[in-house]
Design a protein around this nucleic acid. Sequence first.
DNA 1: CCTTGAACCTGGGCGC
DNA 2: TGCGCCCAGGTTCAAG
Length: 296
Amino acid sequence: MPELPEVETVRRGLAPVMEGARIARLELRRGDLRFPLPEGLSEKVEGQRIAGLARRAKYLLIDLENGMTILSHLGMSGSFRIEEGAGSSTPGEFHHPRSKDEKHDHVIFHLEREDGPLRVIYNDPRRFGFMDLFERAEMEAHGAFAGLGPEPVGNALDADYLARRFKDKAQPLKSALLDQRVIAGLGNIYVCEALWRSHLSPMRAAGTLVTKAGRPGTRLPALVEAIRAVIADAIEAGGSSLRDHIQTDGSLGYFQHSFAVYDREGEPCRTEGCGGTVTRKVQAGRSTFYCPTCQK
DNA sequence: CCTTGAACCTGGGCGC
DNA sequence: TGCGCCCAGGTTCAAG
């Protein structure tokens, strides 16, 4: 799923029901997602109260009162949904999936709140997602965060920083921006969108945005602004979809969002006066959508 | 170091 | 209806 805005939307959707709730039981419907679930995960978190929900890059962080944090990465197809009530399944009980989707419910948080029980269910058909448990105080030592670049919305990302990272890079902009060590949280969709907004070709070598002296060239500030704006807009869109979603089925994952180039192959470019056509090209095994007419 | 390609897994869509 | 193929928002690892 999920690039940064989707994970942030999930966080905002889950926070009101999870924060302050007690984990009565953590039900693991299978022992592994992408990786084996940590040894003794259920026992370690059961009985704990949830202190808060945070996010770093595409990672959702569930902070517990005892200083432990549950880390959740949603991979390509992970989502959470909220169901009220205690639910029917109990440990050891044979489970009959009611729908084909339910068979991908892998982890269930049985929560106790003052206003009654409820479940937060993690569903992930492709199982590219994973969960881990670590000491919040030792977060920097966790492999998931080692070498992770700055958040795209925040003071650490600016043209000077990108100039440093892009200097002498022959790598195409598309791949350079997907690198989580450069900027943390961008994925295929928002990289395509940010490049379109800044009229930059995905194939252009990253180093061409930097002067010989290592200073940001004229176009780098526009790229930074486009990245910030595209992420901010998507989080905003997630917020509105959240209000609709919660009212419907309570599922939190992708949200409908309209993109300028992503998945619009063959459609007219939306750049004012451009007249070009959105084109799809495979770069490093991933689809890139861009307009060859206005992105140079 | 750099880059590409395959791998992990399931499901949906499309052409025949 | 069915089959085969291609595609998918992420990340990692091996190989060139």
